[in-house]
Write a protein that binds this DNA or RNA. Structure first.
Length: 461
RNA sequence: GGCCCUAUCGUCUAAUGGUUAGGACAACGGGUUUUCAAUCCGUUAACCGGGGUUCGACUCCCCGUAGGGCUACCA
């Protein structure tokens, strides 16, 4: 039955009852890392025994998210395909007297949990006959954990012979799949004694357990959409890089021995030590994720950056033009995820001026240290002059940011950099916060640059 | 309430009985700059409390306290 050939086998067993979450992903990640580092197998198992809450859509979302994040599994199972297997085990437990069919007295209305959930209350369920032992296990992260199972009572393991529930299916599958190490969230720690009891009743030795600290929201409760935890799909949609998400999440509860923060999946697998995982829960901090993402963005080559960013680029910036190429390095340092691109190119955004010159009041053209109409006009006219000559000399393709800078620089230095460059910035971008005027002129091209300068000059009459 | 887990800067964490308690994010200040960003430099900021053990505790033990998880015919 145990088909692990002495190898490490781990599994990730999500229930498809919601969009795949960063917290779940972190669990999957640690589980996978452990398998990889031991040359073992990593299994994905969809736990969809709750027919009311499980949805195909969510299962697809789990699979798709894992793929996006580059997490590969060696085998895939779905519990709803395995009813016959569970049936066999339930029967075995009944036959051996470890479980029995229990006649239920109807639950009273008002306040009880059963009354407030949608689940159907059966007249008859299958309960595990609790031997009421003391159970203990050696957690790989926490050390010895001990429970008295008496108060657990005879817990339900199936609604009927065809409808097993959580504790039973988990144990059966972990046995059948030869799982050697169960790595899961701390929220399962109190489920462990019940599951160990089932192992023992079935005559199997429980695997090793590692209960990961929980990922917490800002309010320190278990991370959920309510308290700041978004789905993986959400981060994908917002234009995060999977590598950055993986890197950041790994560092929540674990870190390499040195202070290194940037690690590839391969490096993580190499350096990972499960017994050095933190015991306390960690708050998921999106600010730091953003910082990580920005760092990863900065490490991309311009071409890679553009390829990945292209789905997020506005329509008017279509297709691999030189404009896009020059934009890459500027854009990269200004955004923390591709999702920021939409904003930055909006009319009020920092680079929105490329598409459309925002309206600006005339006095925005004046440099604060020399707010003179006559001087400002002179500087603009002179700049225009210089740029017209430059274009004649180098043509449209030579009209680069560097060329513009070289052309304007000596005049700017003699007349005062702020005096010349500030009006120029405003004339070209209509904004106080923008890339420098050389880059702006280049991005706009010579024609548009000339037009905007003329426009500004005429405003000063 | 019961059972279980946890506890170092605001956050993620280092320290494995002897350190000026270190790093990163954030915040703040400064340099640079025509603006913003980026970058560089710097600053602020923590051992939950009380008992032990010990020559010596952030480190070990106990008790509190606080936070969290579980407490379903969910997973």
């Amino acid at each position: 039955m145990n088909h692990n050939d002495g190898k490490i086998v781990t599994r990730f067993a999500p229930s498809p009852t919601g969009y795949f979450h960063v917290g779940s992903y972190r669990t999957a990640l640690f589980s996978c890392i452990f398998a990889r580092q031991n040359g073992g197998k990593f299994i994905l198992r969809i736990e969809d025994t709750d027919k009311e809450r499980s949805k195909k859509e969510y299962e697809e979302n789990i699979i798709e998210s894992l793929e996006w994040l580059g997490l590969k599994y060696d085998a895939f199972f779905r519990q709803s395909d395995r009813t016959e297997i569970y049936k066999k085990y339930i029967q075995k437990l009944i036959d051996s007297g470890h479980a029995y069919i229990s006649q239920e007295t109807p639950v009273k209305e008002g306040g009880s949990i059963a009354a407030t959930t949608k689940s159907t209350t059966r007249a008859e369920v299958i309960r595990f006959r609790n031997p009421k032992n003391k159970v203990s296990f050696e957690d790989m992260i926490r050390g010895k954990v001990e429970f008295d199972t008496t108060e657990l009572g005879d817990f339900v393991i199936a609604k009927s012979i065809d409808e097993p529930i959580f504790h039973l299916v988990v144990v059966v599958d972990d046995i059948e799949m030869g799982i050697t190490n169960i790595i899961r969230g701390e929220d399962h720690i109190s489920n462990t004694p019940r599951q160990i009891l089932i192992y023992e009743a079935l005559g199997f030795t429980p695997p090793k357990y590692a209960h990961l600290p929980l990922l917490l929201g800002k309010d320190r409760s278990k991370l959920s959409k309510r308290n700041g935890g978004a789905s993986i799909t959400e981060y994908r949609r917002r234009g995060y890089l999977p590598e950055a998400v993986v890197n950041y999440l790994t560092l929540l509860g674990w870190h390499p021995k040195d202070d290194k923060e940037f690690l590839t999946f391969e490096e993580i697998v190499k350096e990972f030590e499960i017994n050095r995982i933190q015991k306390g829960g960690a708050i998921f901090n999106e600010e730091k994720l953003s910082w990580f993402n920005h760092q990863y963005l900065m490490r991309l080559t311009d071409q890679n950056f553009l390829d990945l960013a292209s789905p997020f680029m506005p329509e008017w910036l279509s297709g691999g033009s030189t404009l896009n190429k020059r934009l890459a390095s500027i854009l990269k340092e200004k955004i923390s995820s591709f999702g920021d691109i939409t904003n930055i190119f909006s009319v009020s955004g920092e680079l929105g001026f490329i598409n459309e010159l925002p309206q600006y009041p005339n006095d925005m053209l004046f440099w604060k240290k020399d707010p003179s109409v006559a001087n400002t006009k002179t500087h603009l006219e002179k700049s225009l002059d210089i740029l017209v000559r430059l274009e004649k000399e180098v043509g449209e393709y030579g009209f680069t940011a560097d060329a513009v800078k070289v052309a304007l620089w000596s005049y700017a230095e003699t007349a005062g950099k702020g005096n010349v460059l500030w009006p120029l910035r405003v004339a070209l971008t209509g904004q106080e916060r923008s890339p420098d005027p050389f880059i702006s002129a280049f991005l706009l091209g010579p024609e548009e640059t000339k037009e905007r300068l003329n426009n500004a000059i005429s405003k000063l009459k």
